[in-house]
Amino acid sequence: MAIQWSLVLFTVLTGAGGWMLACVAIDEFAGKTRTVNKLAVVVAAVVACLGGVASVTHLSHPEHIMGALSHPTSGIFTEAALTGLMAVCAVVYFVLLVRGASAGARKVFAVFGAVFGVLLSFMAGESYMMSSQLAWNTPLLPLGYAGTAMPLGVALYLALAARDERADTSLYAKLLLVGGALAAVTAAAYGAASGAGADQALLLWGLAVVVGGVAPAALGAAAIKKPEQAFAVACAAAVCALVGATAYRCVMWLASVVVNNFFGML
């Protein structure tokens, strides 16, 4: 089964945008890096929208996208709805920031945007769960989608926050450490359950676990110890997390080939 790069990009980018919005929402309550939230919410929205555009290119006839959205129970409809709701919340939150609206109003839309974004990072993987694909039919798959998206979104937010020398980035360095650990655990669990440790998927599985999880966690620990280097560390973590998140989504397609070939030999 060929890797569907449009879908890989969609889930990586929307997942990153969703977790960036989660960091924005966290800071609405923590108030440590609030000066960066205006830029962060714009970057998160742009990244998520680019992911949405990538998903449309997966259709052989992109002009038929409205037909694909006419089935409310489909995975495509759920993903599109969550992407749209996340984008709307991001736009409203940005307007509230610019207009100096009350903290309560900002928090409401920041939280809703975060919920929709994080949920999308999970549902983008859940839509692939089907009994006809044994390597996909496990809740570990969407957990890995959400888990590998977290360090990428957090690293991008941390990189933006670290540009302000006055900002306290310690909380987001810790979140990067946690996110990297979750990415490593969820990617490892899915790989073990799906058979990714066999044949052609092994290398990518290793990239997802080590580069996409262990490396960001280690870089998060480094940012905690040396906050003055947080920007460089966050940029490095974002690159590692991007490689790992992409590799994880490729593992899904290649693991399916391994399992299907095994049953085809029986």
Rank of each mutant, 00 (worst) to 15 (best):
E28F: 10
S170Q: 10
A101H: 09
M130Y: 09
T138K: 10
A87L: 08
A25D: 05
P151R: 04
A101Q: 07
V233M: 10
A135N: 07
G125E: 06
T33H: 09
V257P: 02
P216I: 00
A87E: 00
V92K: 09
L156K: 05
W253M: 11
L219H: 03
M20Q: 08
L39W: 03
A198E: 12
G179M: 03
V8Y: 04
G179S: 06
M1Q: 11
T138W: 03
A25Q: 08
A255T: 04
M86I: 01
L69W: 12
V92Y: 10
E79I: 00
K174R: 13
T186G: 07
T33G: 10
G180K: 01
A193T: 07
E165C: 09
L141W: 12
L119D: 13
G191R: 03
V24M: 01
A80V: 00
L141C: 14
L203I: 00
F77H: 12
S6R: 00
V98K: 15
L175T: 00
N37Q: 12
A181M: 05
A22D: 00
A184M: 03
P142R: 09
V95M: 12
A90R: 04
A183K: 02
A217V: 04
C240L: 00
A103H: 12
K38Q: 07
L202D: 07
C235A: 13
A181G: 08
S55E: 10
L203E: 04
C49S: 14
L177V: 00
L158D: 09
A188R: 04
F29N: 03
S74G: 06
A223Y: 02
A187V: 02
R34N: 06
G31D: 09
A48V: 05
